[in-house]
Nucleic acid binder design. Sequence first.
RNA 1: GUCCCUGUAGCUCAGCAGGAUAGAGCAACGGACUUCUAAUCCGUAGGUCGGGGGUUCGAAUCCCUCCGGGGACGCCA
Length: 560
Amino acid sequence: MNLVENIQGQLRKRVEAALQVARDEGQLSFQEVPPFIIEVPREKQHGDYACNVAMLLARQARMAPPRIAAMLAGYLGAAGDTLIDRVEVAGAGFINFFLKDDWLFDVPRVVWENGTKYGWAAPRGKKVQVEFVSANPTGNLHMGNARGGALGDSLANILSMAGYEVEREYYINDAGNQIELFGLSLEARYLEMCGREFQFPEGGYAGEDVAETVRHFIQHQGDSLADVEPGLRRKKLIEFALQEKLDYIKATLKEFGINYDVWFSEQSLHNSGKIEEVVNELRERGYLYEKEGAWWFKTGNGEDEKDEVVIRNNGVPTYFAADIAYHKNKFERGFDWVINIWGADHHGHVARMKAAMAALGFAPDKLDVILMQLVRLYRGGEVVRMSKRTGTLVTLNELIEEVGRDAARFFFVIRSPDSHLDFDLELAKKESQENPVYYVQYAHARICSIIRQAESAGIKLQHPAKINFRLLKEPQELDLLRKVAEFPNEILAAADTLSPHRIARYVLDLAGMFHSYYNHFRVLNEREELRDARLVLVEIVRRTIKNSLNALGVSAPERM
RNA sequence: GUCCCUGUAGCUCAGCAGGAUAGAGCAACGGACUUCUAAUCCGUAGGUCGGGGGUUCGAAUCCCUCCGGGGACGCCA
């Protein structure tokens, strides 16, 4: 049950009824009800909720907004109303609703009854897939992958809370040119270590981690491949390396708190002939044309030059072709909504991908791509280039070790995906003591401490039904109830706008309100009834903090 | 040249499906621990929302334009 949504719905009905009565009585003339909103105003003095209908009606009613608002208010604030305390008209014509506090006293019961599921919406019977990270299995995960991981996993959590059936997926790019280059790099290192002639490929993977993988291979198989046919040698090396790298990636992501439902191999699309199949389908539907020996996909109306090659003139399909087959496969699996998290450097790919889906008869609206701006890494003010090939990168493993999983995840997810993220490692380490994540976690730990303290004094948390919440008279207490009540709506808003950072902001706010309250009032005070009510209040705050942190993949410690 | 993101307090960023007096954290300054955890709190100070037009009852938010920063424009992925 979503209390806030419920209240907003009730107010909306009252406003609609008032509009009808006003029209029936000839006070107001309008053709249709405009799409007005019932919102929580920023300023507290503007009431619990505000409605903008008067401003929206001004034109068609040919009346000044404040006059409309005043007239409607006359129909709204009936004496004896159980919900509305009073109605005021203010500003440019806002109708401000001041509610009786009673509804707030329902909040603890609702939280209590939902328990660990407070904030979860009812299942809506829609399947959504979130694909994220999907880094090439040719190296370790870097800062950009870390951001994508934190973002994608949190988003998946939030969508799940919003009632969607969510699957997390990792697309393994284990085919194509990069893999061939990877093979050549492995081979060169291998021959080098076996003391043979070798030639390192131009632009190859020169990183130390690749050399290390080759060393591992030699530990297992020695120089058994030194004299075999190069194609076979590379195949064996690639097989070994991909397995090792992928295992490592899986372990790292797990350590970062991310668990995937599906690991999808690009190679499997090649093997099963799905790529060829989808290319043929596009060709039959008339979306491909041949030019200079290659096959091109028509992206737009043919006027621009954004067309993209799907089959190279050597007959080998491109990454784009594989990706089309992959996305077709996604839709065929019956997802109602497909979300990809890509680095901003792939933005040119979005329109093409959507066009390809449309060409295949799928609704492109069902595909959403979050373009995450790239992370730029600094070390003591120096920009660090992140390149897998040269191996100069800070890995996710190092990040977890240096900054900690909780702080790292919170840090990535507190910013909107649109923000360019400058990450200075020195600064992050220095600031780790002051990181906002500790502020939130500390609030949780403090509440746990209060409850422990109460228990050791023989005071038990009681069911809200047994509590007189009218004793909570302090404005800060009512504000906390209000804030907790907003949580389910915050989740829905974060899901709708694909914005996990809203939850990070929310929980930071809630923690701040709690810390302030803590410093002003004593929960465990002498008056038993008040004490019991406050104990339940801080407990529902604790649960809300914990559920928020869970959504972000951050732990909620009981002691700090 | 085309496209995407971005420009808000000294710094890092929220707010941007239009709403009322533009917010938070950090940094700065001044206070609060005999009391449930001071990783906290309270107070002070800090702004031409990059510039200029437009739409509107109302613009940080939408549109146009200019300027600054980042990125993409491959038969790489």
